[in-house]
């Protein structure tokens, strides 16, 4: 990793809120490669990201944090390893209402967790406030795969929620670094 580059990757299926989350954090207008969504069955929205989303947070010392978002459609999977290269951590966003939630969880954790090596935080949106079991079920499912990652109910339209995802990821990255130092 280049010393003054720090990269956070946002991933997840179409409509999970990656572009919205990056927009919440980025200093400059988020660079999006949006095209008209032709896969309305998968997600009913007008535009979708085809290549990547890109945002940037400049830091006081002149360095910066690069925020990348993967394209949501699975046919653009070839972009995933390219965007994941050198990422300090990954924020996976999922749609709690989607019928394929568990399949998405499996697909994306397999692709991005690097067997638990990569710091990862999962944000699940659109979970009803009286659903007390959904998050637990996802966390238990991940633990059964030896993936001990935080799963948080979020609304990425709320900046506070996106900041919580980032703070949780930073704690994961720190713990990872400390473990590497001990080794």
């Amino acid at each position: 990793m280049i010393s003054n580059e720090f990269k956070i990757l946002f991933t997840g299926p179409m409509g999970a809120g990656k572009t919205t989350a990056i927009t919440q954090l980025s200093d400059q207008e988020c660079v999006s490669t949006d095209v008209i969504n032709t896969d309305l069955e998968q997600c009913n929205k007008e535009m979708t990201t085809a290549g990547l989303d890109y945002g940037y947070i400049s830091l006081p010392d002149g360095s910066g944090v690069r925020l990348y978002g993967t394209p949501g459609q699975e046919r653009f999977q070839f972009m995933w390893p390219i965007l994941a290269t050198n990422a300090a951590g990954v924020i996976l966003l999922l749609n709690g209402e989607h019928p394929d939630l568990e399949e998405h969880l499996e697909l994306y954790t397999n692709a991005f967790s690097n067997n638990g090596e990569t710091p990862l935080v999962i944000g699940i949106g659109r979970i009803s406030s009286d659903d007390f079991t959904r998050i637990d079920r996802v966390t238990e499912k991940l633990a059964a795969k030896h993936l001990f990652v935080p799963v948080i109910s979020v609304d990425v339209r709320e900046c506070e929620d996106v900041l919580l995802l980032v703070e949780t990821l930073l704690c994961q990255i720190e713990a990872n670094e400390m473990e590497l130092m001990q080794v």
Partner: peptide
């Protein structure tokens, strides 16, 4: 018992970057 955790282990290679990001985001 595994080797004990060293004091100052938080001063890792990404420490400055993480601190800067937290400051920048008001965290």
């Amino acid at each position: 018992i595994a080797p004990s955790v060293q004091a100052g282990a938080e001063h890792h290679r990404l420490g400055g970057m993480i601190k800067g990001l937290r400051t920048r985001l008001g965290l």
